[in-house]
Structure formats: C-alpha cells, structure tokens
C-alpha cells in the first residue's frame, strides 16, 4: 500500500473535512484512522458490546461520508462532531436494544467497560489539541468530584435527562444541574476559557 503524501498526513481535521466534502476518500480514511479509537471507545462505553460498538462505528463514518457536503468545517470541531455522532448513534442503538445497564448502578460504580479489550493509551486527538490543553483536560477530568462525574456520565453515556438523573441518583434536580454545570465548566475552562455573549 502506498503511503499517503506527507502533506496530507499532516493535514488538520478541518482540511481533511474540506477534502472529504469534495469526495476525497483518502481524507476520510485519515479521519477514520484518527478517530477510530475514540468512536469505538464511546460506543463501547455506551453499549458494552463489541459487535454493537463496531456496528456503531461503521454507521458513524457512513453518515459522515454521506453528509459530507452538509458539514460546515468552519463551525464546530471535527472531534466534537464525531464524538457527539458516536454517542448519539450508540444511544440510539442502546434504546433499540432496550438494554440500559447504566440504570442498574451509578456510572461511578460501573466497572470499566473496556477492561477486557482495551489497551490503555493516549486519547487519539493529538492533531486537534495541543499538549498543554490535553494536560489541562486530563487534569480537569481527574479533578471532577465523584457526584459531578456520575451526573455527567449518566447524561452523556446513558442519555438521561437532568430530571431522570435526579431520580436515578435520588438527588434534587437543582443539585444535579449544579453538578453538571460545575463539572462541564471545569472542562470548558480546561479547553481554553469561556465565551462571553450578549443579551438579546
């Protein structure tokens, strides 16, 4: 197999997305190679089933390819887009399967889903985050309080609403909202600060 050109290999996600929008399959292959681990890990975390997780990854990249002309690379980060897409499709699959293992225990109590199959390694986003940001994100994730993390994970990986999380954790809705906002805020800060907006 021929190696991709050096310039393409170093392309940013945004450039690759623009190439994908133009129908460049090699650019999509590069994006796949960058985000295979991430999308699979998310699907596995949600579904806890290797075959279903693989099906989800196939669906995610099929959808990226089919919707390529509608993706606006100037808006939103590719990593965010694929993360949300993988999560969304995995949760869709989870609901179809009508199996919600997260409901049987708090996310914080749940066993590591990839323990049997995973090889611990760095997150696959070296190309989109500088090392300082990565370190700050890692620190922010590590610094989440247990109740904040539980609320965040139930929302993200189990697809529960704030109200459902409040019921699940037997906490007031306001407390759950506070946990989620505080946890997310620390992650936002790690990514580089807040945008201040005006009032309409």
């Amino acid at each position: 197999m021929l190696d991709p050109p050096a310039t393409a290999a170093a392309a940013t996600d945004e450039v690759l997305l623009q190439q994908v929008a133009g129908g460049d399959r090699r650019a999509l292959e590069q994006l796949y190679d960058r985000y295979e681990d991430l999308t699979y890990a998310i699907a596995m975390r949600v579904l806890r089933n290797g075959a279903d997780a693989e099906d989800t990854v196939v669906e995610v990249f099929w959808e990226l390819w089919r919707a390529r002309e509608r993706f606006d690379a100037r808006r939103g980060r590719c990593r965010t887009y694929l993360t949300m897409l993988a999560r969304s499709r995995a949760i869709d699959r989870l609901r179809r399967r009508q199996a919600r293992p997260e409901l049987h225990g708090t996310a914080a109590e749940a066993p590591p889903p990839l323990a049997e199959v995973a090889s611990p390694g760095p997150a696959p986003d070296q190309t989109v985050r500088c090392s300082e940001t990565k370190a700050e994100v890692a620190a922010a994730l590590a610094g989440l309080r247990t109740d904040e993390r539980a609320a965040l994970e139930l929302s993200f990986y189990a697809g529960l609403t704030h109200q459902e999380i409040a019921q699940r954790l037997d906490k007031p809705l306001g407390t759950v909202k506070s946990h989620i906002r505080r946890g997310l805020m620390s992650l936002r800060n790690a990514l580089g600060g807040l945008q201040e907006g005006g009032e309409q």
């Binding site: 399959r25 292959e29 796949y32 190679d33 295979e36 681990d37 991430l38 699979y40 890990a41 998310i42 596995m44 975390r45 693989e54 990854v57 196939v58 990249f61 099929w62 939103g76 980060r77 990593r79 965010t80 993360t83 949300m84 590591p112 990839l114 323990a115 199959v117 995973a118 090889s119 611990p120 390694g121 760095p122 997150a123 696959p124 986003d125 990565k134 994100v137 890692a138 922010a140 994730l141 590590a142 965040l152 994970e153 993200f156 997310l184 805020m185 992650l187 936002r188 790690a190 990514l191």
Partner: peptide, 25 residues
C-alpha cells in the same frame, strides 16, 4: 458541546481493530 466531547478523553482506548477499518471503508 466541546466540553461534553472531552468526557471520553479518559476512556481506555481499544486495541487496533484492523477488520473494522476494512468494514467501515
């Protein structure tokens, strides 16, 4: 959305899935 998308950063990453790549493409 970007903040939410950091949450999977500390997931353990899977071993390479060579068959999956072929299937996706």
């Amino acid at each position: 959305a970007d903040a939410w998308a950091t949450l999977p950063d500390d997931l353990p990453m899977p071993a390479k899935l060579p068959k999956l790549r072929g299937r996706v493409l």
